[in-house]
Computed example of a mutant assay.
Amino acid sequence: MAVKAYDLTGRTAFVTGAAGGIGRACAVLLAEAGALVHGADRDATGLHETAALIKDRGGIARTHLLDVTEHAQVRQAVESCGRLDVMAAVAGIMHSSPVLDTREEDLDRVLDVNFKGVLYACQEAARLMISNGTRGSIVTMASGAVDTGGPGLLCYGVAKAAVVQLTKTLATEVGRHGIRVNAVAPGWIRTPMTDRHDPGAQERTEALMSRMSPLGRVGEPDEIAHAVLHLASDASSFTTGQILRPNGGVAMPW
């Protein structure tokens, strides 16, 4: 019964940020669980590589080259699925600046991608699920940054906190349709995005996180993908409006 609960055969999933990192891991794992996966990203090369990985493992993949900050593009891509059972809104960017040095354009850019992009994906997924009478699952990507302040993380933390509020609010509004909405709030995960964010400090940051985690290490994208699969599947059928924290035992140490 436990294995069957994670079987997504016959279901359709949509994953934003599917070109790499956590988004790619989610797309591949959902496909391995049996879902037809629609991957979306603005990185055409990375998106093609993800689709190839899925197909090499016997899965089915569709790709959508889009910018999640463009609502019309998100709407068109989601509607083209015809049916949708799972939305994994993973796309995001990193930004770091001290509060006193944060510019309006910094905040706008991070909110556009990390909050509005998630909002658009959630809105269009919920609309399609409701219109089709689908008892679906929407999974958003928050962060351990929502649990505590951290130097330089104003824009990122604010956007991810907004994602948490979106998740909890939407869960109360669509639950009567049988749609569940939950968030995953990872700790420090080794991904290309974290490497690009601060390459010089990556080794030091990983060493710090490893010391602060009871598990003694940082996380991997596949470990977050398994959390998403749990929330996407029937294994979490009575779970909604919740924040799952796969963070190695610590949210965000400073």
Rank of each mutant, 00 (worst) to 15 (best):
Val146Phe: 01
Ala142Leu: 10
Pro192Ser: 06
Gly23Ile: 11
His64Ala: 15
Trp254Gln: 14
Leu47Gly: 02
Gly21Lys: 07
Ala25Gly: 05
Val139Gly: 14
Val118Asp: 04
Asn247Ile: 05
Thr45Arg: 08
Ala52Arg: 09
Pro221Glu: 02
Thr16Met: 07
Asn114Asp: 15
Gly175Arg: 02
Asp43Arg: 07
Glu105Gly: 00
Arg83Ala: 00
Lys168Leu: 12
Asp222Gly: 03
Met212Thr: 05
Val86Lys: 02
Thr191Ser: 14
Arg190Gly: 06
Val113Arg: 01
Leu231Ala: 14
Gly92Leu: 06
Ala31Cys: 03
Asp7Glu: 03
Glu206Ile: 00
Val28Leu: 12
Asp106Cys: 06
Thr191Pro: 10
Gly219Phe: 02
Pro98Gly: 11
Val174Asn: 06
Lys116Phe: 13
Ala61Asp: 04
Asn132Asp: 06
Gly92Lys: 05
Ala33Glu: 04
Val184Asn: 08
Ile243Tyr: 11
Ala91Pro: 05
Ala33Thr: 10
Thr167Leu: 08
Thr50Ile: 00
Gln73Leu: 06
Cys26Ser: 09
Ala91Thr: 04
Val228Arg: 12
Pro214Val: 09
Ile22Ser: 04
Asp198Trp: 12
Val139Ile: 15
Gly23Met: 04
Ala13Glu: 09
Ala235Glu: 05
His177Pro: 01
Leu244Gly: 11
Leu208Glu: 11
Val110Lys: 00
Ile130Lys: 09
Ala207Glu: 14
Glu203Ser: 09
Lys55Ile: 13
Ser233Ile: 03
Ala161Phe: 03
Ile93Val: 15
Glu206Phe: 07
Ile60Asn: 08
Val218Asn: 13
Asp222Cys: 00
Met193Asp: 14
Val68Gly: 14
His177Gly: 02
Lys116Met: 15
Ser237Pro: 05
Thr239Ala: 13
Glu203Gly: 09
Val28His: 09
Leu84Ser: 01
